[in-house]
Design a protein around this nucleic acid. Sequence first.
DNA 1: AAAGCGGGGCA
DNA 2: TGCCCAGCTTT
Length: 361
Amino acid sequence: MDFKSILTGWYKQNRRDLPWRSTSNPYYIWVSEVILQQTRVAQGLAYYQRFTNTFPTIYDLANAHEDTVLKVWQGLGYYTRARNLHNAAKLIVNQHNGKIPPEYSELIKIKGIGDYSAGAIASFAFKKAVPAIDGNVYRIIARIFGVFSLPTSAQGKKDFHQIVMDLMDKEAPDTFNQALLDFGALQCVPKSPKCGDCPFQDYCYAYRNNMIDSLPVKGKKLIPRDRYFTYLLIQFGYNTFISKRKSKDIWHSLYEFPLIETEKALSPNLLHKHKALKEWVGTKGYTIIYISDMVKHLLSHQTLHTRFVIIRIDSISKKLSQECTMVPTSEVSHYSTPKLIDNFLAAEPAAKYFLSPQDFH
DNA sequence: AAAGCGGGGCA
DNA sequence: TGCCCAGCTTT
């Protein structure tokens, strides 16, 4: 039996029933593909439901405010995905009559749709015979056919693309591509793949040569950089201060509290003397209510060490009025915030000293 | 070609 | 703790 027959046979028995597979609406398929970029199905599922319920059509998404889109995306990470999706929806509504282009060559031009997603949308929604090569496919192809090219290199991408194109079931490219994804996610998994009952066992290069753990070839890993944050949760009556992140840095367009970033960890002792603290709270008088322990938050490329400080003030500093928005403390949760902040707001100290009504006398 | 960009789950 | 997930964009 040839490759696609074996794969299709496996797929009939093992396919996952996923909501974006029971629709032919290109908008829903597009949304699912963007949500699932670098994101597990298990994690993306609830976001897909929430996103499509909140924005049932591309017009609803196009007409929404960016903050609303980001709030729905909150906690999922890689927030540029949400902003690109939103901007692309506006562009498609305004310039393409709301119709998502069916060709790979047009899809790839849309910001936020790369090689994989263009192939996935073209094949799943429009039955085009183009590959949709993601991490699953690199792994499967590298192992079964003994491909040692580095998937992240330009040459590697060509090699894998050519192989998948040759294997492709041109009569049913959607099923073929989906089968590859499921096979990679369920059977040919990264660690301890289920070779024991694998239908490709007989001619899998990696299995026959005992090289399961060395294929696919991996690039070098990057070392996360340490950063030290001190967030100031400043209370003025029943209000607090937030600002929107705008620099080319993590969490672009999300909201946060006044931030002091330092080269090294800022101890409570040093915080009291720190110039930036005075600038934020002013000179008129302030009371530090609470200083948290250091919280470690891991990103793929940075390790954040963060202290949360709850402060009460009697007057608003120039810096606060210039750089922040004052909002009722009870409404902070309406804004899209990084998981790091979200976590602290959900924890006991914030509930006790920050979010709950205080007696100011 | 390499770096930047989140967060979570699992061995 | 390290790896990797339905990757893409910018440098």
